[in-house]
Nucleic acid binder design. Sequence first.
DNA 1: AGTCAGAGTTGAACACGTTCAAATACCAAG
DNA 2: CTTGGTATTTGAACGTGTTCAACTCTGACT
Lengths: 224, 224
Amino acid sequence: MTDTSARSSKAEQTRQSIIDAAMRLFRSGGYDQATMRAIADEAGVSVGNAYYYFSSKEHLIQAYYDQIQAAHAEAAEAPLAGADGFTDRLRGVLLAWVDVAEPYHEFAGKFFKNAAEPSSPLSPFSEDSSAAREAAIELHRRVVDGSDLKLAKGLREELPELLWLLQMGIVLFWVHDTSTGQQRTRDLVDQTVPIIDRMLRLTRLPGVRGVVDDIVGLIHMIRP
Amino acid sequence: MTDTSARSSKAEQTRQSIIDAAMRLFRSGGYDQATMRAIADEAGVSVGNAYYYFSSKEHLIQAYYDQIQAAHAEAAEAPLAGADGFTDRLRGVLLAWVDVAEPYHEFAGKFFKNAAEPSSPLSPFSEDSSAAREAAIELHRRVVDGSDLKLAKGLREELPELLWLLQMGIVLFWVHDTSTGQQRTRDLVDQTVPIIDRMLRLTRLPGVRGVVDDIVGLIHMIRP
DNA sequence: AGTCAGAGTTGAACACGTTCAAATACCAAG
DNA sequence: CTTGGTATTTGAACGTGTTCAACTCTGACT
């Protein structure tokens, strides 16, 4: 407690050095080279010690996950501050993600594999990821709230979560996208966003409104 | 060549016995217990021999995949033969999948994990899976063609692939569904199908048609 | 100072998927 | 029947993520 930083006990230092070592190796050599033994070596600890702090390699990867999330939140500030048109705001936020995630694309395939297992803490639907998920949905809430979009109340409340689902779909496409600079994913965003906008504006048509209500009801039903 | 069955050479027998052994172990003990060593033992061959016929464990699992696919195709015949309403046909085919897949639900999480990696042959988008994917899309083409649905030509041609995507989404929900008998997935199907139907019928509205054309254009763009 | 419970740390060991040089079985040609 | 090449089969060995009994260190209490 004499230390100004309450969290820099020996244990906390060890934990951080393991994370740092993992980051370095993930960046330099990709997923396959970053074995638990290599990470432990790089951090100057034993492999057993790494497991004392991170109960699996997946939990270690989670730090990586959080880092991308934080970088996206930061990169999304520019479009959120600079535009009030719904399409511009949504496109800006989605493209910001593609920009931020670009360095991790090669790594992402392996990462994604682990995230896809339902029982994995890395799953975007898991309890462990709820903080990151809520943050991402909150980002989309700002996309909607700061825009000129006019919607029925029920839909407007659900829209951020739906946009997050859209983003998950784009991530799925992105993971499979082998084009240079993930240009095809950027094209997908460019094409998709105006369509979403037009679909949302159509929801005010009398014949469409009933279907929208059903969809909102469906969402409520499938939520845990 | 003296044998009546041209495909029952020694090699073919070995190959089949490995598949059979894998099936038995997957069924009885799940994914984790079915190690390559256990499979080889059960088949009465060496582990190296199993790799002579299947270049990885994933390729061995592919046989499992194909089996579910075939069972679904068979189970889907009843609803396809017995109904001409689009909703009934689609719901019948989707629920047939849930029925067929139910025994594999516990196994599916691990299976799904591998399938999610883009480079995996098990990925539903991969080259190795194209045959199964085409078969599944063909099933949905029959759902559409045999129904009373009236649609613009462009949309009608793309619809089977879109319905396959819908099915992938339902599979994603199903994998995460821990309710008994996957009842929540069945509820999801029951609720979703009429909404799809209503949405499709809305595409004939003048204001909606333009958006539909954009969506069809988008699909053409993102296809490899 | 001495003690001791618990936090922190170690590295050998385990089971796994996968590889590979070597051994064996098979079969057409001489 | 022998030969030689190809197809098939073997099992030890490798590197991986993970576990665990045993060890060392720390610091609060006598």
